[in-house]
Design a protein around this nucleic acid. Structure first.
Lengths: 193, 193, 193, 193
DNA sequence: AATGAATGAGCGTTCATTCAT
DNA sequence: AATGAATGAACGCTCATTCAT
């Protein structure tokens, strides 16, 4: 139990204040325990961080995996729209994990620059392939205009990245939802046949 | 001179390793001076940071200002494309300032959460207005299809945000340039009449 | 069983790395048990140490006792040589206890400076008396030249002390055996009639 | 000044209570300074220890060097006796350095087992050579009986080692002086022609 | 007899900061 | 303008010890 609470507190605090900005004592206090108790569950600060990172990455990867397994029954448009809307949903449901992942993908502490790059590349490729499939499907369905697939993939991934960033500085839900829809609709206009 | 070198070192290190991850001693060492020398020029760590932050923000704002003053002589498409391409150029020419701004806009340290929000909102509005102007101009020119202006503005800002993020984790220049062009072309397809 | 294994591990580790340099967790680990298990057998670290110390001292004293009971049937020379050679043998057979005793006789931790001094004085006196007896016997036998007994006793005890120290930093067995013999022979030359 | 006082306090405390048994705070307190001040002069605890160790070893080596340069004008007996008596004098004049050296030669902390062995071997060889010279000189002079040189060297070094140890547990000056003389006289009896 | 969880005390170390020079 | 010496505060971590199980 304590172990889990420690991980949750760590996820939130590391995500909000960064690795160096978060003292183990803060994490411990949030759980109602003294600092050394942490060492009963984790080797050291780095280990706690890595454990949390690994699980956040896992949950993010699982989400991407799920996304990419979107039933082929759906139309290409629905698949693509589903991706952005479920991404938002994921952020809303796992704000701590999301912030954590975003922070350390962009600004990894020195000691895990490589680890993070590798871990994230995996998610990236998975998503890229899924998007590619949807686009190709769209073209086959005739819903998407014939054009180089990569161009559309790049554009869609850019759309998702932009929305990722925006989620964290447009705190208003309505504004954000509007942005999601507007960006997607414009993308779709540029893509549909 | 020393003062300037301190600011440069601080800009780079704060940007790369974060506020808490950067010791004043590192900054001093990079300049070839002992830590207490910093206090001859700055009140304390926070002051040094804020000074650097202010100037980075200023330079970023100036860049946005410049962008937004794009000669109306150019076509809407050129203006818009100019924006994304000059953004990339800015990143390339001022990588430290860019990383710094991106980092602290997304993850400000507690003590300047508000300051940063305000400062950045300004830049955001400036850019929003410029984009709006270009779009309207595009519609007037007939180059842009008639549609709600805000939708297109949102989409374009999303495009730029996405490219911002991507600049910092796609280190390959060619890949990035391709992404810029692909994302822009798709956007333009969705927008032009 | 565990209790004994704990004492063995403690004897070795306290002897090798010192009281402060040995963590209870190391001792426990060596026995394949968790640290708190120690408290089922010993009151605390000091108690474990004292128990081990007491037994090491006991075994050392028993050895000295045995030495000192050397059958009078033997010649004085044989008794004296027997003492040094059996000392070496004791070191070889009980290296842990020997190192332990040597360490804490020379460098006792504050909390048992007195205890140790007392305990060791006892052994010292016992040995002194035995040596005295052998020397006197030697003189009576005519094997030892007539001279003040104390001088010879002091010299012989010095010989043994020197060999104690040397045992622990001349790790080569042959070198050490040579030194034992050479030192003894020279001593004997200075003593015999 | 502070630096020197730190070294002195460290020499004494490390010698008396061991590396692990001595807290930096004790050393600092003895000098009238707060713990972090130590880091202005030494990299860390190990560095402080090594610095002190190096200098203690240096002073010990210098003493051995001086010993070994004993004017050849003196008789062999005087040279040899000079060695033991000057050794005692050195202990009396530099009790802290002596205890320190003895402690760490016999019981080095793990991290400098090798360093210490090397350092001490040097002193050992220097002394061995000097003793050899004196013995040979004694034989040439006719003062020392003809016998294998190594035997006498071993015996003499054993004498010195024994006296080293005894210095630290026979605190009474008179007792110690008696032991020095008695041990030496017996040695000399066994050696002279 | 043994353990997992937890803690108080303390340690080595870093760091921002001050101050006299 | 710059430094060496020093410090208070805090941090990561270890360790002996306790306690409920």
């Amino acid at each position: 139990m304590t172990r889990n609470k420690l991980k949750e507190a760590a996820l939130r605090l590391f995500g909000e204040k960064g690795y160096d900005g978060t003292a183990l004592s803060e994490i411990a206090k949030e759980v109602g325990v003294k600092t050394p108790a942490i060492y009963a569950f984790f080797e050291n600060k780095e280990d706690l961080f890595m454990t949390v990172f690994r699980e956040a990455m896992l949950s993010y990867n699982a989400f991407i995996q799920e996304l990419s397994e979107e039933k082929q029954a759906m139309s290409a448009r629905d698949c693509l729209y589903g991706a952005v809307s479920r991404q938002s949903e994921f952020y809303r449901q796992h704000p701590e994990a999301s912030m954590f992942v975003l922070r350390y993908v962009l600004f990894p502490p020195d000691f895990l620059k490589e680890t993070i790059e590798k871990a994230f590349l995996q998610a990236d490729e998975l998503l890229t392939q899924a998007v590619e499939r949807w686009i190709v499907q769209g073209i086959e369905e005739g819903a998407v205009r014939e054009q180089p697939v990569q161009q559309l993939v790049d554009a869609f991934l850019n759309l998702m990245d932009g929305l990722s960033m925006q989620y964290f500085y447009y705190t208003s839900k309505e504004v954000y939802t509007r942005k999601v829809n507007n960006a997607f609709e414009t993308f779709w206009s540029g893509v549909r046949s």
